[in-house]
């Protein structure tokens, strides 16, 4: 069968579309910034921008993990609930350690280690069920989403888990302070993003993720250990949820059943807006960063003006997601 002939128009069209696809998210971001400037002169102020970025970093760090999971053809719906239960357990562990360790950084560091470890364990559980148990990722993580959410409600006895006041004081700077005026969450987000981009583009693991998401059979026939690579994406996702949570806990110093609600959808939305294909096979970390920032700016801009109700935030985010996917549809090939 001759496939070469009809490809030619696709090629010419593709040049145009590919550009739009690459710069699309950046273009949207630029438009939002311009819109923000025109609506409120405070938009570009240091305080406003650091505020938006710091709030976006939790979702951003989680979304970077989600980019790997989705690129490899998977999905993790449990990240929001996972964040809540990690936050809850972290707080309990820190409160429990105070009598033995006293108030200070020792307790905080122990709490951080707990958070990252828990994230790794939760991610491993998801990954094992999916790769060894051969259950669809959607089902497994829908299940653990419920389990984690229920666990945090149970641990908090239906209420709120609060970090000891004095420890919270020690921990506070991790969210509110920073380096050279840049808050820590933004720094960590940037570091995770850079490491993620390098991993995705310049390591075998990143290449294997894309290969598996593109066609699992091809990956298997190309001697890639598909199960292990997949498992690793879920572990990475869990660890990054842990990282996000240890930046989140000092912000409020508490966790409840409403912590991290809908974070999974925001993270997935950021990934998709950034240009990663939901069915896998192609992913880019910088796109995810842009996508998450776009979502954050929409909320911010709605708050900075008074023509449109900020309660419509979700609606605008929804429109952006649908638009993003519509614009990217030209990429579909083969």
């Amino acid at each position: 069968m001759s496939v070469s002939a009809p490809d030619i128009p696709a090629k010419t069209k593709r040049g145009f579309r590919l550009d739009l696809k690459t710069v699309g998210p950046l273009l949207a971001l630029a438009l939002l910034v311009l819109l923000g400037i025109s609506l409120n002169e405070n938009f570009l102020s240091y305080n406003n921008l650091t505020n938006v970025l710091a709030r976006s970093s939790f979702i951003g760090i989680i979304a970077i993990g989600a980019t790997f999971v989705i690129t490899a053809g998977g999905l993790d719906l449990s990240v929001g609930s996972m964040a809540a239960v990690i936050a809850g357990v972290m707080i309990m562990v820190m409160n429990w350690l105070i009598p033995t360790m006293g108030i200070g950084w020792g307790v905080v560091l122990a709490g951080m280690a707990t958070g990252i470890l828990l994230g790794g364990v939760a991610g491993t559980f998801n990954g094992m069920m999916i790769t060894r148990g051969r259950i669809e990722a959607f089902i497994v993580t829908l299940g653990t989403m419920g389990i984690f959410r229920s666990l945090v409600t149970f641990l908090a006895n239906g209420g709120t888990l609060s970090l000891n006041f004095q420890v919270a004081d020690v921990y506070r700077p991790v969210y509110y302070d920073g380096l050279l005026g840049v808050p820590w969450p933004i720094i960590v987000f940037a570091l995770v993003a850079i490491a993620g981009e390098i991993t995705m583009r310049y390591t075998a693991f990143g290449r294997y993720c894309a290969a598996i998401g593109s066609n699992e059979q091809v990956a298997r026939y190309s001697s890639i250990n598909v199960d292990n690579v997949r498992l690793l994406t879920y572990i990475l996702q869990g660890v990054l949820v842990g990282v996000a949570v240890l930046l989140y806990v000092p912000r409020l110093g508490s966790a409840s059943s409403t912590t991290g609600v809908l974070w999974e959808l925001e993270a997935i939305a950021g990934v998709i807006i950034g240009g990663t294909t939901l069915k896998g096979g192609y992913g880019r970390i910088w796109g995810t960063v842009v996508g998450v920032v776009i979502l954050g700016l929409i909320g911010n801009i709605l708050n900075l003006q008074n023509l449109i109700s900020p309660y419509l935030n979700g609606a605008f985010q929804g429109v952006i997601i649908i638009l993003a996917v519509m614009l990217q549809r030209g990429r579909k090939n083969a």
């Binding site: 075998a204 593109s214 066609n215 091809v218 096979g281 192609y282």
Partner: peptide, 20 residues
């Protein structure tokens, strides 16, 4: 179905088996 990643370029396809 099993040999090539149709959405990718020549290079990643060529080296997928021997990326190491």
């Amino acid at each position: 179905g099993k040999g090539l990643l149709l959405n990718m370029g020549l290079r990643p396809n060529l080296t997928l088996l021997t990326l190491k």
